[in-house]
Computed example of a mutant assay.
Amino acid sequence: MIRPERIDDATISHIEDALNIALAQNDLYGPQAVLPTVTAQQAIARALLAQSPDRLRPRLLNVHSQLAQLAGWMHFDLRAFDLANASYEAARESAHEAGNDSLVALVLCNLSYLSTWRGSPRTGIDHAVAAQVWARNVDDGLLRSYAEVIAAFAYATSGRANACLTALDAADDVLANGSGAESSVAYFHGPGLALSFRSDCMYRLGRAADAHQAAVSSLELIGEGYTRNRALAYVDLAHAHIESREIDHAAQVVGEAAGLAAACRSDRLSEIITDARAELTPWADALCVRSLDELMADYGFSTRR
């Protein structure tokens, strides 16, 4: 079905259009709804690469890398970690072949996040440091800032407070000096997400007051369209409230996160929210926590007692 003479600019434009639609839909609806579309488009791009004319190959490699990167993120959200890693590696290979330093840096960021999430923060640091190096090769402040916060997350998880704070401050400095790119591969990043990462890092480093302040500020800046990011920021805020024994407030914001997650299904996000509820177990008999359990049950969550 796929012949070299059928591969032209319009063919690739159709795949790029599908990618852009999938990116927007994933932010709103989550991976369960969108992954089949991304997987299909990735298979088409891979088949086209086998027969692509030389002049179109770089463009095809770029869109294949972006699709594989997006598929990796979706597998990550669905807790299919091995599939996520394989997709990221495919994305990195295509990005390198295309000579796209921006995509290489983005994929390395996500490989770092995946490694840290899986309990290997030192491997996460390896990937993050490589991402920082590649990101410095391009005029993309959002990407450079994202690489810094990903490094900070790995440093915080491994208990390296000074390195974490240095990376967080570097991320903020880059954003303060302008994004440097009109169309960034890290389009989703910005001051709100940077503050969410700061809150998470502060929580991991045992600095509840700083975590609380950063979480509140992040929620003021993360747009309504970024459903998952807002849900994660609410969880960040819940952690800070729990550390301060502000149980009523903690239960309220866990409920806010659960409501957002109900509209944007993600196994990983659901696990994060369920874990936040589990931290409230010592106060399970409190009215606010019982009300939270009822609300979460309405949203389809199970709770841990």
Rank of each mutant, 00 (worst) to 15 (best):
M1T: 14
I2P: 07
R3C: 11
P4H: 07
D9E: 10
D9W: 10
D9M: 08
T11M: 10
I12V: 15
E16D: 09
A18V: 06
N20S: 13
N26V: 06
G30T: 04
G30C: 06
A40P: 00
A40E: 01
A45E: 03
R46V: 11
L48C: 03
L48D: 01
P53A: 05
P53T: 07
P53N: 04
L56W: 11
R57N: 11
P58R: 08
R59V: 11
L61E: 14
S65P: 05
M74N: 07
H75L: 02
L83F: 13
N85D: 15
N85L: 12
E89G: 08
E97L: 13
A98V: 05
S102A: 12
S102W: 00
V107K: 00
L108I: 09
L108T: 01
T116E: 05
R118Q: 15
R122F: 06
G124I: 08
D126K: 06
H127S: 01
V129L: 14
V133T: 09
A135M: 08
D139P: 07
D140P: 09
G141Q: 06
L143M: 01
L143I: 02
E148S: 12
F153R: 01
L165M: 04
V174I: 07
L175P: 02
N177Y: 07
S179Y: 13
S183T: 10
F188D: 04
L193Y: 12
D200R: 14
R204G: 05
R207N: 10
A209E: 13
D210W: 10
H212F: 13
S217E: 15
S217M: 14
S217K: 14
L221G: 02
N229H: 07
L237S: 08
A238F: 01
A238P: 03
H239F: 08
D248M: 00
A251W: 10
G255E: 08
G259F: 02
S270V: 07
E271A: 12
I272V: 15
I273R: 06
T274P: 05
A278S: 10
E279D: 15
E279M: 10
D285R: 09
D285A: 12
A286P: 00
L287Q: 13
D293V: 09
M296S: 03
F301L: 09
S302G: 13
R304M: 14
R305D: 14
R305A: 11
